[in-house]
């Protein structure tokens, strides 16, 4: 009985409580520093699965001499998944990759594009007319290399009004 009273007194003393808080604080600090160390380590490890060099081939591809495209309304490039068009203002390229979920659109006889996977439809300028595609078909940047070849950059997109004037 007497022991318990002494113990209670001890617990009530400011020194004991301070001591206790300090111990709690140290425990909490240890726990939180361990937790944050693990979190930061995991965050660092999450960099591993994202490659620093993507296994893609060069995005710039030569398509042939520029002169070949002059006056030819449409030239398909199956391997590069794009079409090169020419109108009275110049040349432009439309990508065949559907902006919905990455299927390849097919160019119909009327010049429109149909996606086989989820029924998106694009007009002859690549604008969405039907279906779930969120964006028009991508316009790819064209340029002319020093040796007079038409070069397409498959990772650089341009606006629908941009033409390559030759």
């Amino acid at each position: 009985m007497r022991d318990e009273t002494i113990r209670d007194d001890l617990k009530a003393s400011p020194r004991f409580q301070l001591e206790h808080q300090r111990r709690d604080f140290l425990g909490m600090a240890a726990m939180w520093s361990a937790a944050s160390a693990i979190f930061v380590a995991l965050l660092g490890a999450m960099r591993l699965p994202i490659p620093s060099v993507f296994p893609e081939s060069n995005s710039r591809v030569k398509l042939g001499s520029v002169d070949l495209f002059q006056g030819v309304a449409v030239t398909p490039f199956v391997e590069q998944r794009l079409w090169v068009f020419s109108d009275d203002q110049g040349l432009y390229a439309i990508s065949a990759i559907c902006t919905h979920l990455g299927c390849l659109v097919a160019r119909q006889e009327d010049g429109e594009f149909d996606c086989p996977c989820h029924g998106s439809r694009f007009d002859s300028q690549g604008k969405v007319t039907k279906g779930p595609a969120p964006k028009p078909l991508l316009r790819l940047a064209l340029s002319v290399s020093p040796d007079g070849q038409l070069v397409v950059d498959r990772q650089q997109t341009v606006g629908p009004e941009v033409r390559l004037k030759v």
Binding site: V78, E79, C103, L104, P116, C117, G119
Partner: peptide, 21 residues
């Protein structure tokens, strides 16, 4: 270079594919 037409997922994802469309 040639997508399946139609490109259908296995049956249990087809309901989702309809929603995706």
């Amino acid at each position: 270079l040639v997508p399946e037409n139609p490109a259908k997922a296995p049956w249990y994802f087809l309901g989702l594919q309809e929603l995706v469309s």
